[in-house]
């Protein structure tokens, strides 16, 4: 029975059917399935499948947003059923923006969508975001991770500027940093001292989860 429910839940997330996802979350809890088992076996595989399909061009941004909503609807219900103190690790809080001087926001938008779909609380500051603002907003949001995107080789230095500003303010240990964007590489991330690099939106989720686990 559980297997059928798990598969139906995966399908609901992939189809972006929030109503069905909610219904299946309630049904699973009513059948006595452990909340964490329900999340990890019924819904997480669904959103993973969505991420893979998006990365392969088999599913598109509007559908990805709908799937994220379905995932959110189900996890809200299941999280509410987890007894106080037994909750899975808190949701990661992620501040993101395209660096100052750079107006490209398509790639960042996809990262935001996938992070949300995977349960992160995301504060999207948009594009052309000054370094000071990234830090101020991360502070107010009590972020775990600050992610920056740069599409141009000429705007990449702003990612380095953020690392230097964090060090100067003594905040480097408080926030993890992630960098991405078309010309950005692992080597650049290492060079400037960023904690993580992601080649694409799917990798951003994986790296963000890893960074969260080491927080």
């Amino acid at each position: 029975m559980s297997e059928a429910l798990f598969q139906a839940s995966v399908d609901a997330v992939v189809r972006g059917d929030a109503k069905k996802a909610e219904e299946l979350a309630r049904q699973g809890l009513a059948e006595g399935i452990e909340p964490l088992v329900l999340i990890n076996q019924a819904f997480v595989p669904g959103i993973n499948q969505v991420g893979e399909m998006f990365g392969a061009g088999k599913l598109f941004l509007p559908e990805l947003i709908m799937s994220a909503k379905a995932m959110q609807a189900a996890t809200d219900i299941i999280n509410a059923a987890i007894p106080e103190g037994n909750a899975q690790e808190g949701r990661g809080r992620f501040v993101i923006g395209t660096v100052e001087g750079d107006v490209h926001d398509i790639g960042k938008t996809i990262v935001v969508a996938l992070l949300k779909a995977n349960g992160f609380e995301v504060l999207d500051l948009g594009r052309d975001v000054p370094t000071d603002r990234l830090i101020e907003e991360a502070d107010k949001f009590n972020a775990h991770i600050i992610g920056t995107s740069a599409l141009l080789t000429t705007t990449m230095p702003a990612q380095q500027k953020l690392e230097e500003a964090l060090k100067k303010a003594g905040l480097k240990g408080r926030f993890k940093t992630m960098v991405g964007g078309a010309p950005v590489t692992e080597r650049w991330a290492k060079k400037i001292g960023a904690d993580g690099f992601a080649e694409d939106a799917g990798a951003a989720v994986v790296v963000a989860k890893q960074l969260l686990a080491t927080n």
Binding site: P62, I65, K69, V103, D105, T109, D124
Partner: peptide
Amino acid sequence: MGLYFQPDGPCANAAELMPLGKIDEAR
């Protein structure tokens, strides 16, 4: 086409609308 979205252009910014779930507006 990114240059046609606000603040560079006349159209509402689809990249901002989409993550908010405003799919019809973004489209």
